[in-house]
Design a protein around this nucleic acid. Structure first.
Lengths: 168, 168
DNA sequence: ATATATTTTCAATAAGTTTTGAAAATTCAA
DNA sequence: TTGAATTTTCAAAACTTATTGAAAATATAT
């Protein structure tokens, strides 16, 4: 397989993959393109390589920056802005976990804690099942939360860091 | 907070939460409803409680069964079919992980293995960055794959099982 | 067998999301 | 300043996905 074909395939699959992970197709495709670009590239490069509009590139690069996966790079002597993606996959994964935890898991756990304190007769089958389900999810979520925190902070913890080196 | 209000909130949030996890809103809402129902319920119960059409319930319960999260229950003397959800959250999580691994991670790793064997001059910056990125993702994905397999099979492994009891 | 209850299918439609592109805003150099 | 280059915004259009509902299929009781 030639580079051009392989690139196209990677970008397309990473885009499809992204849609399953709360990241939209184009955002994931731009991310893919940046991951395989050895040097920072411009809005126009992205527009051209992915055949998408300027507005689209602008919005999605902004989102990628919001996710902490991409950064703007200023190149001396160049008027245009350049974009570059974090290439260390461990850092990419950590960053995504961190963001999703903040955006999804944390608010869910907060809600569950409230729902657990429902008023009502505990002998009522409905009430009983409701509180049992909510508390089961909350406990599980709480543990997941802790595990993820540990992963995110792995770099500050040498025991874990050495364990996690396997992943790097 | 009263049960009725709490139920509505839980169903609505679980639905929103699901959309971030590759599960559609309605499917997640039906799942939520089943999770808090002490007894199996019918299509009509679901239609009524969530105000959705018969066809919608039918398709989504079918999908939930496909994900291994819900099962049909036959109640002696009843003409209608009843549905019931697995209530053990650890099992629910395991099942979701198993399915998503099969549907998403495995095919991605297969593709990456192919893309890694690209033809081309390794001194070319483009080629170099491409293979480095692909191989980085593949290695990371491969480790994740192993970890997930271990989690899925935890019940067969007592050391892990005792570790994982924390989650249960 | 027939009637009735129940489930399934799927084309049409509705709802939601992404993309475009042109106008407005901003940045920068002379 | 002014003007050209560049980036940003956002309403409208295109596209995608989810939902409805009625007809067809299936199952069950008599």
């Amino acid at each position: 397989m030639k580079l051009t074909e392989a690139k196209a395939q990677f970008i397309s699959s990473w885009g499809a993959f992204g849609t399953h992970w709360g990241i939209n197709r184009t955002m994931a495709q731009i991310h893919a393109l940046l991951l395989i670009s050895p040097d920072p590239i411009t809005q126009d490069d992205i527009m051209e390589q992915l055949s998408i509009s300027r507005g689209n590139v602008n919005m999605n690069t902004r989102d990628l920056i919001g996710w902490g996966l991409v950064e703007r790079v200023l190149i001396p002597g160049e008027r245009k802005e350049f974009f570059s993606a974090e290439k260390d996959i461990w850092k990419v994964a950590t960053q995504i976990i961190k963001e999703r935890k903040k955006r999804e898991l944390d608010p869910m756990l907060k809600l569950l804690a409230q729902l657990e304190q429902i008023e009502g007769d505990k002998k009522d089958r409905e009430v009983k099942q409701f509180t049992e389900t909510i508390s089961g999810i909350r406990k599980f979520g709480g543990q997941a939360d802790k595990v993820l925190d540990v992963m995110i902070k792995a770099d500050e913890n040498w025991v874990l860091n050495s364990l996690l080196k396997f992943f790097k």
